[in-house]
């Protein structure tokens, strides 16, 4: 896949950071505002997808990137499960138990473990969407060869 024109590349460079930070904002405020892990994770993967689309598939070693993304995905979802199991082992023996102090409604650090779940889900979704995208790009490269 070829890269696009210099205009697209420059704009992508300028915008990418903002999109990434906005994704992080959506993830970390998941328990306060609409959004959360899935929506924020989609933003995170969007920046990488923008990078590949604007600069072409040659800037990255796609196969290695895909393997790494898939491993990060595995780690993130494993962390999620670990958090749920910690709730099971600590406290009142409840799977998905909320073992941290709940805090006050409306503050950033509140709602116990839910922000942690959101972060794990955000990383997982970002990595998963990126893996899917990279896999499809790799298939396309294979066919056009």
């Amino acid at each position: 896949m070829q890269g696009m024109s210099p205009i697209v590349k420059k704009v992508a460079q300028l915008v990418m950071g903002f999109i990434f930070v906005y994704g992080i904002y959506i993830i970390t405020h998941g328990h306060l505002t609409p959004g959360g892990g899935f929506a924020g994770g989609a933003f995170l993967s969007g920046t990488f997808i923008l990078l590949v689309l604007s600069f072409g598939s040659n800037v990255l070693n796609l196969r290695r990137e895909e393997e790494e993304a898939s491993e990060i995905e595995g780690l993130a979802i494993f962390t999620f499960l670990l958090l749920a199991v910690i709730g099971f082992l600590l406290g009142m023996r409840v799977f998905f138990g909320n073992f941290l102090p709940k805090g006050r409604i409306g503050e950033l650090i509140s709602a116990g473990v839910i922000p942690l779940y959101n972060i794990a889900v955000g990383v997982e979704v970002g990595a998963a969407l990126l893996t899917i995208f990279l896999a499809l790009v790799i298939y396309k490269e294979e066919i056009s060869k």
Partner: peptide, 8 residues
């Protein structure tokens, strides 16, 4: 858990 561990 086993499936995620195997994938990592």
């Amino acid at each position: 858990a086993a499936s995620f561990l195997i994938s990592i």
